[in-house]
Design a binder for these strands. Structure first.
Length: 321
DNA sequence: AAAGCGTGGAT
DNA sequence: TATCCAAGCTT
């Protein structure tokens, strides 16, 4: 859960997750959709799919216990270089480096590594590995991460309180904030889509499961058009209407959302339908909507509609259809 | 091996 | 508002 996510954000998710699935066997036995529902809002949903796969692998291939060496851990789904090292060192006190973003920063400054991230990852891990004490690998891993999190800050590092300031090369050069070097990031394009808010006379809302792979994979969505860098023509959008509907009209306002690699603006087309749901979709009773595996973007759509009320055909605030 | 993959908080 | 950043991994 903590991969690319802050402790503060993870906290409540972690608690609920462990209450529901207290051990690997329980998680392995759970339906993926339940795991995704519990994960909804945390982001990077491949982590949830991988964690579930990982639990199954641990149960089926490792007798229900995590392996204690880096190489075996590294083969499990969702466990990469950092997580394998962290588990080996912290859970089993094996001499492995746990190099997260904090440690990368500490080392990049201490050795004044000129190679830019992410290319420098291997170089930095190679610098850490010989430093790992044994026993004590777990404490070392924690200490290095805490040094980065509390002293060797991204901006305004507290060098006066740093236990290794004396031989820090970036400190000596007076430019610690210039490290780690980073590859330039690319622009974030704007994309647009139209969401179809379709209700049955009994109030149920049409929802759909997204494909298992890719963005928001396996999560539940309010059906939308594809998300393109061009604005949608109303007529083109209707070609993506998932089920025949009546009283279709645009809803005032927009939903803005920022993903890692693009910005998205959704507008909503609301209507009514009494048809059976298509194969990849289902009618969700209104009072069950919030218990679905809705990612934050889709919760924004739901919130948007709840704010406006959902009775009858909807029109823009200026009265246009 | 560069690109894809979420979200919220801090500055 | 824009940018950065967070206990990274997979393809």
């Amino acid at each position: 859960m903590l991969q690319q996510t802050t402790v503060a954000t993870v906290g409540p998710y972690f608690k609920r997750f462990l209450e529901r699935w207290p051990d690997v066997a329980a998680l392995a036995a759970a339906p993926l959709d339940d795991v995704l529902t519990e994960w909804a809002g945390l982001g990077y949903y491949a982590r949830a799919r991988n964690l579930h796969k990982c639990a199954i692998a641990v149960v089926e291939s490792h007798g229900g216990r995590f392996p204690d060496d880096e190489a075996a851990l590294r083969t499990l789904p969702g466990i990469g270089a950092y997580t394998a090292g962290a588990i080996a060192a912290i859970a089993f006190d094996r001499p492995a480096p746990a190099v997260d973003g904090n440690v990368e920063r500490v080392i990049a400054r201490h050795a004044r590594v000129e190679t830019a991230l992410p290319k420098a990852k291997a170089e930095i891990a190679a610098l850490v590995r010989p430093l790992v004490p044994s026993p004590g690998a777990g404490d070392f891993a924690q200490a290095m991460m805490d040094l980065g999190a509390m002293i060797c800050l991204p901006r305004g590092p507290l060098c006066d309180r740093c236990p290794v300031a004396a031989d820090c090369r970036a400190r000596a050069a007076g430019d610690p904030e210039a490290f780690p070097r980073k590859a330039p990031k690319k622009a974030r394009p704007e994309r647009h889509g139209i969401a179809f808010w379709l209700r049955r006379p009994d109030g149920a809302v049409l929802v759909r499961r997204r494909p298992e792979q890719g963005l928001l994979g396996g999560m539940t969505e309010i059906p939308t058009t594809p998300w393109l860098e061009t604005l949608w023509d109303a007529e083109d959008a209707l070609g993506h209407l998932p089920v025949a509907a009546t009283a279709l009209g645009p809803v005032a306002g927009r939903i803005e959302h920022v993903f890692t690699h693009f910005r998205l603006t959704l507008t909503v087309l609301a209507g009514t339908s009494d048809r059976p749901a298509p194969a990849d979709a289902r009618w969700c009773p209104a009072d069950e909507l919030h218990a679905q595996a809705l990612p934050t973007l889709m919760r924004k759509v739901v919130r948007h509609m709840e704010k406006r009320g959902t009775a009858g055909p909807l029109f823009a605030e200026d009265g246009s259809p």
